[in-house]
Design a binder for these strands. Structure first.
Length: 434
RNA sequence: GGAGAGGUGCCGGAGCGGUCGAUCGGGCUGGUCUCGAAAACCAGUGGACCCUCACGGGUCCCGUGAGUUCGAAUCUCACCCUCUCCGCCA
């Protein structure tokens, strides 16, 4: 949500920033609504003040035993006018909010301009990508490996739930659990995050606060009782700060959680249909930071490094890219994606996305802090990042650590979480199962 | 799901329908006292919006939304949430 006051002060700057995102200028329209709103409010305030004064006089008159009929008559006259003014104010204020609610955040100055992902800027490459030819017969993709192991079953999932779900079994189910436990331990023990077990069903307000609503309802699942299934733990974690006024001394807040994430991906039909790269349900360890305004840029660097550390310790090759203006999400002011190397696909694929939203979300959810010195309150800055998506981490581990015989070596750091297991071997074939 | 109770400021806790944004206590901040601290005492201590260069002024906010009334934190209704007991249950 944007601050209409800032737009009022610098409409050209606002429109120019929108243009960087490929959007048409909106300030003129917004400011017209704003002017209407303020005029309505001024008129209403005035009428209200008049009524308050009259009512006070009525009280005084009655106390003295005098007649208050004339005063009451004037209030009665005011009433119609007030009702009209009030609905006018509400209407213009609602109209303005509705417009503002669907305008994405503005990019930070250092965000590269660009139309789509092809214009993202690569910041660094870490680790040596394993060539496809490194595996005898060519590196396989994760679904061939998983099905070959007999531990990844898309047919069974389709029977239960349809397309874009997976059933993991045995060593692969364990691997998902190991990855999540490893990541949570790393972030809580080495990176200062507080582990959270949040609800995965939330109400409208929470989805509005982080920006999924009102614009992206189509990408979400909703229960018949009106709850939304979270598409990321960013929603519950960030909304922990909603409605709060925090002491600056308490900042930053750093939360991490492992949760399932649910996305209907309505617009993504036909993309990545094979395998478990793009699912309606996937696991993810999320990182969320709530900071003071000046601290958010540095926090974003720190958060990205926390996510990178996961991949480093897993021994996965990756690169970090700065998303261009056209590829950033709705609430983001600046985003760094981490893309992990998938030997089977022979390309880098997104596994983490670390964004700062500035005060964009805080304004929506009314999350503020009291600055150490100086008075008043300011909106906090919110940041979120994957640290990292476990489903995709599992894919990367399979493809990176595959052996020519179809088995998969377990990365060192995960072995304590796998009961010491060093290698995931094909499950014995059971008779009767095709 | 059934039956009750309740939602007020950072916290606790008051509040005959009429200067109540709200008594009081605690906390916090500043000051006095002290070598220093504690105690004591004094003072201060909400948010949002609008008008104004400013000084200052106005409106709204006592869970949320409607309503009654000249006037609502105080009355009515609906909803949300919390707590207690019972039932059910992982």
């Amino acid at each position: 949500m944007h601050d209409i006051k800032l737009i009022r002060e610098a409409p050209e700057a606002f429109d120019m920033a929108l243009a960087r995102r490929g959007l048409a200028a909106l300030s003129a329209e917004l400011l017209a609504l704003d002017a209407k709103r303020r005029a309505a409010q001024a008129a209403r305030d005035e009428a209200q003040a008049r009524r308050n004064a009259l009512s006070r006089q009525v009280g005084e008159a009655k106390k003295k035993g005098e007649s208050a009929d004339a005063l009451m008559a004037e209030v009665a006259q005011l009433k119609d006018r007030m009702a009209a003014l009030e609905s006018e104010e509400q209407e213009s204020s609602r109209a303005l909010d509705a417009k503002l609610a669907v305008i994405p955040n503005l990019p930070a100055d250092d965000v590269p301009d660009g139309r789509d992902e092809t214009q993202n800027r690569e910041l660094r490459k870490v680790g040596a990508p394993r060539p496809q030819a490194d595996v005898p017969g060519g590196a396989k993709e994760h679904f061939d490996l998983g099905e070959g192991l007999g531990l990844m079953d898309f047919d069974a999932a389709a029977k239960l739930s349809g397309a874009r779900f997976v059933v993991l079994k045995g060593g692969l189910a364990r691997l998902e659990r190991a990855l999540s436990a490893f990541m949570l331990d790393l972030h809580t023990q080495s990176h200062g995050y507080t582990e959270v077990y949040p609800p995965t069903l939330v109400r409208d307000e929470a989805m509005y606060g982080t920006g999924q609503l009102p614009k992206f309802a189509d990408d979400l699942f909703r229960t018949t009782t009106g709850f939304w299934l979270i598409p990321t733990a960013e929603v519950p974690l960030t909304n922990l700060a909603a409605g709060q006024i925090l002491d600056e001394a308490a900042l930053p807040l750093r939360f991490t959680a492992y949760t399932p994430c649910f996305r209907s991906e309505a617009g993504a039909a036909g993309k990545d249909t094979r395998g478990m790269l793009r699912q309606h349900q996937f696991g993810k360890v999320e990182l969320v930071s709530i900071t003071a305004a000046e601290a958010s840029d540095e926090e974003q660097q720190r958060m990205t490094q926390c996510a990178e550390e996961v991949l480093k310790q897993l021994g996965l090759a990756y690169r970090v890219v700065a998303l261009c203006t056209g590829d950033m999400g709705f609430g983001a002011r600046r985003t760094y994606d981490i893309e992990v190397w998938l030997p089977g696909q022979g390309r880098y694929r997104e596994i983490s996305s670390c964004s700062t939203c500035g005060e964009f979300q805080a304004r929506r959810m009314n999350a503020r802090y009291r600055p150490k010195d100086g008075k008043g309150t300011r909106f906090v800055h919110t940041l979120n990042g994957s640290g990292v998506a476990t489903g995709r981490a599992l894919i990367a581990v399979l493809e990176t650590y595959q052996n020519g015989d179809g088995s998969v070596t377990v990365p060192e750091v995960l072995r304590p979480y796998m009961n010491g297991l060093a290698r995931i071997e094909p499950a014995p074939r059971k008779a009767g199962k095709s």
